[in-house]
Design a binder for these strands. Sequence first.
DNA 1: ATTATCTATAGATCTATAGATAATGC
DNA 2: ATTATCTATAGATCTATAGATAATGC
Lengths: 227, 227
Amino acid sequence: MAKQRLTKEHKARVGRPRSSKRPIVESAREDVLRAAATLFSKQGYSATSTRQIAEAIGIKQPSLFSHFKKKEHILQELVHKSTERMFEALPKSDDETQSAADSLYLLMRCDFLFLMTEPYGIGGLLHLPELRNGPLADAVAQSRHQVIERYQRLIARGVKQGDFQTQDLAVATHTVFGMGESLWSWYSHDPTRSPEKIAEQIADLAMHALKIDARKLDAIKLRYGAD
Amino acid sequence: MAKQRLTKEHKARVGRPRSSKRPIVESAREDVLRAAATLFSKQGYSATSTRQIAEAIGIKQPSLFSHFKKKEHILQELVHKSTERMFEALPKSDDETQSAADSLYLLMRCDFLFLMTEPYGIGGLLHLPELRNGPLADAVAQSRHQVIERYQRLIARGVKQGDFQTQDLAVATHTVFGMGESLWSWYSHDPTRSPEKIAEQIADLAMHALKIDARKLDAIKLRYGAD
DNA sequence: ATTATCTATAGATCTATAGATAATGC
DNA sequence: ATTATCTATAGATCTATAGATAATGC
């Protein structure tokens, strides 16, 4: 009984204790992922040593390899999990009963909000050169392309429906999509502006960039609960 | 005489010849800078070895160090030179006789064009984590901040003059500025769209994001020679 | 017995230095 | 004599493996 209480308080665990006595927060594996995400975002993948990651959670460098066989697998899993989360977070499919402008507005708000709130800070990782070239590049490029395509289809449909005007579809698409991608470089948690409000504002800027009529946009915002 | 002709053709140079016989293109130092810029953009700074840079121009790894004392000095000079070029390329100061909308439009066109045509491809380098943290971060952050401030002042003035409308000045500023920063991730030389046309189009998207009146924008574009 | 850590270390880098070498310049 | 390269290598990493160790579980 006394033993059980101890177990609950100190989480007495199987295996040799850590020399640092630092406790596990989530699970050892998850703790590694979070520490690595922070370090990779700040310093880059190649500039971050396995020793730094290990020390960040209070274990010795070789102990890392009982959780991940290779350093690269850490980055791989960060990308994989956050990609999965992204596709869960984005509206499942574009409701054909809505106008394209409605669908794009919702998609952008979700996308921008996701980039600000995703737990691993994927926004900071996506700019890593190691995710643009090298063995992980294909998977990243593919899911990125999938989302860009979705943006592009909606913008094209919105033009046909007379809600948007663009000179060049590809330029407009990439620019609007890029508003999300560049978000990470300036966004930081700021209590005076919630992520939701920022996402709304950027979606508003994007809709105007696509030259939507102001009254139409007001109607859309009213429908989806922005102020 | 025959010697002089040879000198011109083969650029016979002082010093031990390269084992690769690969000739200098611009100057050894400049060749290093260009090769390094390409490799850093593609692979990242830390993931690029001095051996790779040396081999790219046809010399052995240790020979690099007769041109740059430290690897870091290469990145330093890339940043320094392209920053210098940027401040030369941007309109010198904001002409107070012009409207803020006019000035911003010109500033954006210059900025976006610069990012697409700068010889070292600085757009690709600015996302490197080594330029966001570490010893070079301060210089980069400072010049970046200077330009953002300029954007922000113009947008604020444009709002006062009744040409722009924004909900949140900082969000609008960073989003518009970010259109340039994210450009590099999708722009590639494409003969069907000149950099000038793309810069004009993105400036147009940005002006609309700031909710300028369409007729006012047409007048501005007419004044500064866009179609 | 099983588990999660530890210590010790191999082997592969990578940056940078020292000193030799092979050209031109005078 | 001066210059720009070369070869050889020191010394500092860094990733990953092998095998020991100190807990819990049964």
